[in-house]
Design a protein around this nucleic acid. Structure first.
Lengths: 191, 191
DNA sequence: GCGATGACAGATATTGAAATCTGTCAACTG
DNA sequence: CAGTTGACAGATTTCAATATCTGTCATCGC
């Protein structure tokens, strides 16, 4: 039985093997032992298939982060662990799955829906931790959504795929910690 | 008389007209009415010529910022004007000179010397303002160089060429202001 | 003699014809 | 009849021949 999920598995495999530039629908169909027309029964276009692969792949990044966001301890430590985990996860992805990472980066360049949704998901998680921090009196009173966006923007050098080329530089961890110190004092500061 | 400066003028023109992908040394020589061999008398390689064009072009960004860094008023307002001017200058460049901007972006991707120096120059200017702010009691005591790097990193979404594609989105100014508020409270916070 | 030239070799880019790919759909199968 | 197939048109990509470009250097002319 041909299901979207089986197609996604095959597509991810093909994408990982050949990269976004060389992967094509016929290869995906061949990997499944069906004609490429059948793939089009489940995904309207090649772009939709690619987006679905990226979406699943991005969920594997954000799901572990959601766990941190849902914890109940002090918000300061949680937010730091959340940011560090985000940065580490992205760096790990670019090393382990360079081809899938390139696919994702392509998406984010086109400002595709999937990339935007991923950012929204991350912003929601960060906002949750920040709202907790405000409730617990750890952070100053601000709009959690706006502040979460600001935190994401301020740390984009460490998780935005546009900066992936810089992630091998030494001292990256130190730079992240320096930005974190700045951001943390900003969050904690009384108005 | 063929001088490096005249060559740079011609090269900048050619680069602006054809873009980094199409511009070539023969065209630059033709624009000057000399043979391309003569250009090689002044610049050892095409890459060196390209770097020199970018360097001059980047100096035109950092020079007006140096003026702000050298002012004597309150550091808080100066730092904000400095960051805003940096972000605006880059955005203006990408609109006015897309081809030269692409040249510069290419450099920054290759992590070329010129791009690194530009970042160092900016970091030095920011460090100067931050050191002033610490001396004036506006900012908490920190290492100005480290903090300057952190401020640059935290705002890279608004001036790093890798993010140029996002600079047409509405709300960019608001995002910058939100990050600035966060950073400013971080700078001002007492230890 | 000093700066400029232009022919040259090897590297790189362009081009257009041929091959492949995407997306559709009428026909097929179980 | 639900799901699959494969032939097809038009779009896109590949590939190899051709042209152009980079960087060198022996030679030129002022």
């Amino acid at each position: 039985m041909l299901t979207p999920d089986r197609i996604l598995d095959a597509a991810e495999d093909v994408l990982r093997r050949f990269g976004p530039a060389k992967a094509n629908v016929v290869d995906v169909a061949r990997a499944l032992g069906v004609s490429h027309g059948s793939v089009y029964r489940h995904f309207p276009t090649k772009a939709a298939l690619r987006d679905a692969v990226a979406e699943r792949w991005l969920n594997r990044v954000s799901a572990p982060l959601a766990a941190i966001a849902a914890e109940h301890g002090p918000a300061t430590g949680r937010l730091w662990r959340w940011i560090e985990a985000l940065s580490l996860a992205k760096r790990k992805k670019v090393l382990d799955d360079p081809e899938l990472f390139a696919t994702y980066h392509e998406l984010s360049l086109d400002a595709r829906e999937v990339a935007r949704e991923h950012v929204d998901t991350l912003a929601r998680q960060a906002a949750q931790i920040i709202a907790d921090g405000i409730a617990r009196g750890e952070f100053a009173e601000t709009d959690p959504a706006t502040t979460a966006r600001a935190v994401l923007n301020a740390t984009s050098r460490f998780h935005h795929p546009a900066h992936a080329a810089e992630w091998t530089e030494p001292g990256l961890e130190d730079d992240l910690r320096a930005v974190w110190r700045l951001v943390l004092s900003g969050l904690a500061a009384r108005a």
